[in-house]
Amino acid sequence: MSTTFDKVADIIAETCDIPRETITPDSHAIDDLKIDSLDFLDIAFAIDKAFGIKLPLEQWTQKINDGQATTEQYFVLKNLCARIDELIAAKGA
């Protein structure tokens, strides 16, 4: 059974044509993988579909812009996957 990280990494590799082996849990989607905001929409679409959730991108962006959160909290992949797991758990609750 593949982990959340495996699924997300596969989505990123396929969506952005990034070699799968270069994507690690510590990769920052923006700073390390150079994924821009438009490509991230495609990734968000694929993640939403794959996990049956809705990534709260607007809320995250607002928190980052307001200084209440850092990009690392949402866009380092291990943290992104933790957020996804939380959303999945909340859905099932």
Partner: peptide, 9 residues
């Protein structure tokens, strides 16, 4: 096709 957060397809 999809209603995302801050985007739609």
């Amino acid at each position: 096709v999809h209603e995302g957060s801050g985007f739609a397809i």
